[in-house]
């Protein structure tokens, strides 16, 4: 056998493996092995693509079947139930969907931690007029903030806990009463304290479910006061 023959043989062997992988007849162990090669071996990957395209016409022999609605529902809950990055926050308002509100329970765990922090570190908070608190976070990134609301002064105190600031962008804090348009509270920084204030009339809304969310916005804040997202952290405001 010449070298050329050997090469041809190897090529055919890989091609057969690629075909068997695409056809699906390999066992799990051999499938994993083929997938490892797919990641690292461009030639093998192109052989697999070749067989995928060769068999693609057979896909027409498979009838479409409308899936039940609950699959879509569950998918939305899984993918978008927290402050998942969203390219178009202002239009889709996904945070008002059931999934998002269910996702809030994650935040409840963080709140427990926060209460510990308040009790230990700032025993006089309550007397200072701080009566509401929210822990803002996301399971998709490491941004987390604690916001405290001082009822007497109408000020939000925003404490940055973790997360890397996006370059050339500002972060903006939003107050969301369920079912209504988000209201900008102001820009937040990475300094320990930022005190954007909100108009007095919003204080009475605090009996309702209030969500706070931080979005990434162009420098200077959201254009025309409408969030453009994505959300990096969110959490529910709780009375303490």
């Amino acid at each position: 056998m010449t070298d050329q023959d050997q090469n041809n043989f190897d090529e055919r062997d890989d091609d057969t493996l690629a075909a068997e992988y695409v056809l699906g007849v390999l066992d799990l162990k051999d499938r994993r092995e083929a997938e490892r090669r797919l990641q690292s071996d461009q030639v093998f990957a192109s052989l697999v693509r070749g067989w995928e395209n060769r068999f693609a016409d057979l896909n027409d022999d498979i009838d479409a079947v409308e899936p039940p609605e609950h699959v879509k529902q569950a998918l939305g809950d899984t993918l978008f139930s927290s402050s998942e990055n969203n390219a178009d926050v202002s239009k889709s308002f996904f945070w008002q969907t059931m999934g998002f509100w269910r996702g809030i329970s994650v935040v409840a765990v963080l709140l427990a931690v926060l209460f510990g922090y308040l009790a230990f570190d700032k025993p006089d908070r309550k007397e200072d007029g701080v009566s509401y608190v929210a822990s803002l976070s996301s399971k998709d990134n490491d941004h987390s903030y604690v916001t405290l609301f001082n009822e007497q002064t109408g000020e939000f105190i925003v404490r940055h806990i973790s997360g890397t600031p996006p370059a050339d962008k500002d972060l903006e804090l939003w107050l969301i009463v369920q079912g209504e348009k988000p209201v900008s509270i102001g820009l937040v920084g990475y300094e320990d304290k930022n005190k954007p204030a909100i108009p007095r009339e919003f204080v009475q809304e605090f009996d309702k479910d209030i969500l706070l969310a931080i979005t990434v916005e162009p420098k200077g804040g959201a254009p025309e006061g409408v969030a453009t997202g994505p959300i990096v952290a969110a959490g529910q405001l709780k009375n303490i």
């Binding site: 699906g24 009838d63 479409a64």
Partner: peptide, 12 residues
């Protein structure tokens, strides 16, 4: 696309 993909998954 979900109906087609569901069809594929059901068939397999």
């Amino acid at each position: 696309t979900s109906a087609k993909l569901f069809g594929v998954l059901l068939r397999l």
